[in-house]
Design a protein around this nucleic acid. Structure first.
Length: 857
RNA sequence: GCGGGCGUGGCGGAAUCGGUAGACGCAACGGACUUAAAAUCCGUCGGGAGUGAUCCCGUGCCGGUUCGAGUCCGGCCGCCCGCACCA
């Protein structure tokens, strides 16, 4: 009897895997008839240390990789580093360390930690996005995108983060603040590089329908983000003299052209160009100032009042001869959506109705709800449901869809506008005024304009002799790097000093992993074999940005001939976060869990700070974060309980898509399980012992085969917590079994199965147990255990018997017993008999394997 | 405001085909071992009534469908997530 010692076992088993190089990826030709399976976890930013969230993410990916490998797939399971970005520059500024040194040191540390986790990764494919060999290839395809007209430059107002001194994409601005720094974002005009993601807006929307192994939630979020809407763009002619620059009329956009006859006013945004051509009266200025003041916080928008200003301008209704509509400036109209101008239909849009009621504008009902008569009037609630058009001339009697089509056709025939599809999605601004990123490979020449860096001069490497003692971009102030000759005319020219948004780096790494050492961006044959990624695993926080950008870049690379696929990730799984209880000291500061002692009295829990002895307040369970100090360090956990117990715990306690709460008790339970499992492997006599109790032996075998079935199904369905619960049950059966009765054959079979089943979760323990059973091979290379269907099923099952739907007894029924037999048995059950006394059985429902129900009355 | 999701013991969660509600784990409680504690082992563990067999109640609330509802339908209440005056 030996005690399980993970500190000794785990490194030893890892060394065996390394020595045998078991996790190398097979080339397509080596794979034989093994189908390919590409499993990928979102690669980490090299902050320097892993956290428990990483442990959970990579434990899940590793489970899938090991499981699929055992199931006969040729598995690709790589790892790399999302290594460009601002923290490296911040470290440089704060501590005078060069970003490159800082980053590669962090990578070395984190690699060691990930390797300690025992992940079945093919490390020969590792790269960092800051490797010249990676970003140099990125520059190559960037120039291809340029050739294909998917990249352009324009002057634009950008979101400027005054703390990070950089430009942010729209989606990196959250509630008016930078997503990373939290600083209030300012507006600034700069010439910026853009990627034409909007060119794929339709395809990105429609592609979502093919992603049937993605969470619906993520597909919905992406669809909303792209925000495709179909409608009509048309121009209202001014009734009188048109203002300067608007002789063609005022263009509006609507998704409800069917309600045109219900138009009550025309509205424009406060920053619409038309506003500038109005007489700049004090009243107008006061109104515009008022609108500007209207904040952007959630509360102000929720409770915000509709504000309007009548411009005095009038436009002609396109279908009602002689009728005009007033043009109002309204605070609820946005300049950057549609055309910045609308017609309001108060009866059928709540905002328009609120506005019309406030300023006493006409409300004309044009959609008749089903079962309403034509006296239908709205009060203070707009009618937005289905119905039939009325009060609408040639649209009368049509349903909404038909009326939309007819209105569009009429407007088009009158040459006043056309049906239009618009998007919320904007092109992706990728310029960053930073050093630690991928240089944009172009040269600016006064004569030739923007000139791509010629292929033989790629990659454009980052200069290393830079300093961070002053704010701004070190590339921009570098004495020599930016000064080059124009590749076309050879005159003095300047390099582009902007670098690419790091989301570009992470938008194609999955493709690079298929041929990480190629001297082209992507080896097409390798990509064709491996892509799409079969199972992608990562955090829900990337539901929009990273995943949308990756889908776009995949399409762009498809257009440029690099990739055959258009969707990068066939299956997506978004895992939940790690949470932990919080502790607060009397002084109000958060206290690290390692400094807390919890005592219980009955169901009361008390927290005491170890270092000071003061009583602590036990706070909410929240996402692990440094600011709340409710983090546990993976190193400490590995040291105390071993890597396998940590892996087991993060997989066992909650469904994988949900948050999991870290508790000391929980991980101790996992540790107990690993010790118990080892004790079972160790409880094997030297010689062979024959079974003395065939029934006991059979029962053990059945438990083992049932476990295979349950665990296999659980793993396939991503129900890891349930699968692990079944393993616990199996181990409980095993512990209760008696070798003297079962004999060694049944026991050995059960243990062999157990080793196989736990290998994806606790691989070191599985390997140690496998060796203890006497196998010289590695379980990491073994096939997944197969179950015997006859053994995985009981030949007697328990059938509940109900009377009027209430359980009154249960029967042990032989598989295949006839309904009559079952009914007869039930009628002999004492309790059932009692409940059937004196009543009439009206009906008997027999569902074999499920239920027997006597309906009486 | 709009869209989506979720409400099950003291806690995390099972029961995903409408068929035994509470698997498995944690915590708690009782006992064994120990000088003692930890560890370990055995047992109890939704609420109520009863010595007991057994019975009643119970999956956020109200109602419906069904032989049978945690599961399906309608209406509320609460919590979480996403988007946000998107025409």
């Amino acid at each position: 009897m030996s005690r399980y010692n993970p500190k000794e076992t785990e490194p030893r088993q890892r060394k065996r895997w390394d020595d045998a190089n078991v996790f190398r990826t097979r080339s397509p030709s080596e794979a034989g008839d093994r189908p390919k399976y590409y499993v990928l976890e979102m690669f980490p930013y090299p902050s320097g240390r892993i956290h428990m969230g990483h442990v959970r993410n990579y434990a899940m990916g590793d489970l899938v990789a090991r499981f699929k490998r055992a199931r006969g797939f040729n598995v690709l399971h790589p790892m790399g580093w999302d290594a460009f970005g601002m923290p490296a520059e911040n470290a440089a500024m704060e501590r005078g360390i060069h970003p490159k040194g800082w980053t590669y040191d962090n990578i070395a540390n984190m690699r060691a930690q990930l390797q300690q986790l025992g992940l079945s990764i093919d490390w020969s494919r590792e790269f960092a996005t800051c490797d010249t060999t990676y970003y140099g290839q990125q520059q190559k395809w960037f120039l291809d995108l340029l050739k294909h007209d998917l990249v352009y430059r324009k002057e634009s107002t950008v979101n400027w983060d005054p703390v990070d001194n950089t430009v942010l994409a729209n989606e990196q601005v959250i509630d008016g603040r930078g997503w990373r720094s939290g600083a209030l974002v300012e507006k600034k005009k700069l010439t910026q590089w853009f990627l034409k993601i909007t060119q794929y807006a339709d395809d990105l929307t429609e592609g979502l329908e093919t992603l049937d192994r993605w969470p619906d939630k993520v597909r919905l979020m992406q669809s909303n983000w792209i925000g495709r809407s179909k409608g009509l763009k048309f121009k209202f002619a001014f009734a009188d003299q048109a203002p300067e620059g608007f002789s063609d009329g005022l263009e509006v956009y609507t998704t409800r052209p069917d309600t045109l006859f219900g138009a009550g006013f025309v509205g424009i945004a406060a920053d619409h160009p038309l506003v500038k051509s109005l007489p700049q009266t004090p009243e107008l200025e006061a109104f515009l100032a008022e609108v500007k003041k209207g904040g952007t916080t959630q509360e102000e928008i929720d409770t915000g009042e509709k504000l309007g200003f009548n411009t005095g301008l009038k436009v002609a209704h396109p279908f009602k001869a002689g009728e005009t509509l007033d043009v109002w400036i309204a605070n609820f109209i946005l300049m950057d959506y549609g055309t910045g101008a609308i017609f309001g239909c108060p009866a059928h849009d709540q905002r328009d109705l609120d506005f019309a009621r406030k300023y006493d504008l006409p409300v004309v009902e044009v959609v008749l709800p089903p079962n309403a008569d034509d006296s239908f009037k709205v009060e203070n609630e707009a009618y937005t449901g289905l119905g039939t058009l009325f009060n609408s001339d040639f649209l009368n009697g049509l349903d909404i869809e038909a009326a939309k089509a007819e209105a569009i056709a009429r407007i088009e025939a009158a040459d006043a506008g056309q049906g239009a599809t618009i998007y919320r999605l904007r092109d992706w601004g990728v310029s960053r005024q930073r050093y630690w990123g991928c240089p944009i490979p172009v040269i600016h020449c006064d004569d030739c304009g923007v000139v791509p860096v010629p292929d033989d001069q790629l990659p454009v490497s980052l200069p290393e002799d830079v300093t961070f003692d002053v704010p701004g971009n070190p590339l921009d102030r570098h004495p020599t790097w930016k000064h080059v000759n124009c590749p076309t005319c050879n005159k003095a020219a300047r390099r582009e000093t902007d670098t690419l948004d790091t989301f570009v780096d992470s938008s194609w790494y999955f493709a690079r992993f298929t041929s990480p050492h190629s001297n082209q961006p992507i080896d097409k044959a390798a990509a064709d074999y491996w892509l799409p990624v079969d199972q992608y695993i990562g955090g829900i926080e990337h539901a929009i940005l990273h995943l949308l950008y990756s889908r776009f870049i995949t399409r762009a690379l498809h257009t440029c001939g690099y990739l055959s696929v258009k969707e990068p990730f066939a299956g997506l799984f978004t895992q939940g976060m790690l949470t932990h209880e919080t502790y607060k000291a009397p002084g109000g500061e958060w206290v690290d869990p390692s400094d807390v002692d919890i005592t219980t009295e009955g169901d009361k829990r008390k927290a005491v700070r170890l270092s000071t002895g003061e009583d602590l307040k036990i706070g909410d369970i929240e996402k692990m974060s440094k600011s709340k100090k409710n983090v546990v360090a993976p190193e400490d956990i590995f040291q105390t309980y071993g890597v396998d117990a940590a892996r087991l715990f993060v997989l066992s306690n909650s469904p994988p898509e949900r948050d999991v709460q870290w508790t000391t008790g929980g991980v101790e339970g996992s540790w107990r399980f690993t010790s118990n499992v080892w004790a079972e492997f160790d409880r094997l006599p030297e010689g062979d012992v024959a079974a003395t109790d065939e029934a006991a032996a059979l029962e053990l075998r059945k438990a083992a085969h049932k476990a295979i079935k349950a665990v296999t199904e659980g793993f396939e369905a991503f129900r890891f917590n349930s699968a692990i619960a079944k393993l616990y049950e199996f181990v409980n059966t095993l512990r209760a079994s008696d070798i003297a009765k079962t004999g060694t054959d049944a026991r050995r079979e059960a243990l062999t199965i157990l080793a196989g089943l736990i290998a994806p979760i606790t691989p070191h323990l599985a390997e140690e147990g496998w060796a203890r059973l006497g196998y010289e091979s590695l379980i990491a290379e073994a096939d997944w255990p197969a179950f015997d269907p006859a053994l995985a099923q009981d030949d007697v099952y328990v059938l509940p018997v109900q009377v009027n739907g209430k359980k009154r007894g249960e029967l042990s029924v032989r598989i295949g017993a006839s309904e009559d037999e079952i009914r007869q048995m039930a009628l002999e059950d004492e309790t059932v008999k009692r409940h059937l006394e004196g009543v009439t059985v009206r009906k008997v429902i027999v569902v074999p394997n499920r239920i027997l129900n006597f309906v009486v009355g």
